[in-house]
Design a protein around this nucleic acid. Structure first.
Length: 260
DNA sequence: ATGCCTTGTCGCACAAGA
């Protein structure tokens, strides 16, 4: 069972690349972020024609998340618990049956949080508090769980080509990184870090200033595993190929293979 | 120090991204 996460920066602008990648990478489950469309605008039929089920949590113009799965998608919930008045579409969760077992998948698009010290940074930290509380509740279920998506957090200096450039950015603030470590302290495993502990594994390269050509990247898209999912961890990694295509997203997919 | 690109929007510039 291969589960991937990809911030595609606009599903309508990226549909051809998405279909190509689905055909070649053949992931079982994909969490998408920044679909940037309402549910009615999501290119559902084209994706379903490749054998995927689709669940979306869209929003006009910004944000928006989705889950694609070759297996049935059950018990879908939309929105991160903890603030029913939060209008931003940044979280979707579902249960996917996998043979004798199930896997619970939470797809998330964490707020960017810039500039630091403002309302947006406070929203990011509050969102992280809500995520920690929800993760704690999910871990109590003792299920195979994958919490994945665009966390907008650079966990450590080795997760950036030029960490000094990020010291005043919300993605690399001590508060953001502390919240990340609190998630790990709950018992969640950073799958890509577990398989690739070395520096230089990136998932995002800015469109500007030739960042991709210089490999001036950061690792901000992550897959966190519950203990029972981590027990079944076979492999994990980052698929850099779509970042090199024409009209790419600035993010590229990260993935995990579980023996479910 | 700033913009560098890219997307979507009741567009013809701007917000938001990271």
């Amino acid at each position: 069972m291969r589960i991937a996460t990809w911030n595609i920066n606009g599903v309508k602008a990226r549909i051809a690349s998405l279909l190509t990648w689905l055909r070649t990478a053949e992931p079982d489950i994909v969490c998408l972020q920044e679909i940037k469309t309402v549910d009615e605008g999501f290119p559902r039929l084209e994706i379903e024609s490749l054998g995927y089920n689709v669940a979306t949590h869209g929003q006009k113009g910004f944000n928006g998340v989705a889950i694609l799965s070759k297996h049935p998608i059950e018990d879908v919930s939309r929105g991160l618990p903890g603030d029913p008045d939060d209008p931003q579409a940044r979280y979707i969760e579902a249960v996917v049956p996998a043979g004798e077992r199930i896997v619970r998948v939470g797809g998330l698009y964490l707020p960017n949080g810039n500039p630091i010290g403002g309302d947006k940074f406070a929203y990011k930290l509050a969102w992280l508090d809500r995520l920690e509380a929800h993760a704690r509740a999910l871990l109590a279920l003792e299920e195979p769980l994958v919490l994945c998506g665009d966390f907008n957090i650079i966990p450590e200096a080795e997760d950036a080509k030029t960490p000094a450039a990020w010291v005043n950015d919300a993605l690399f603030q001590p508060e953001s990184r502390r919240a990340w470590r609190r998630l790990l302290a709950l018992g969640l495993t950073d799958a890509v870090r577990a398989v690739h502990p070395q520096a230089g594994v990136y998932t995002f390269w800015d469109y500007q200033a030739g960042a991709w050509q210089k490999d001036n990247g950061i690792r901000i898209d992550h897959l966190l595993l519950s203990p029972s999912a981590a027990d079944r961890l076979v492999d994990a990694g980052v698929d850099r190929t779509p970042r090199g295509w024409e009209k790419p997203s600035d993010h590229t997919p990260a993935w995990v293979e579980l023996d479910l």
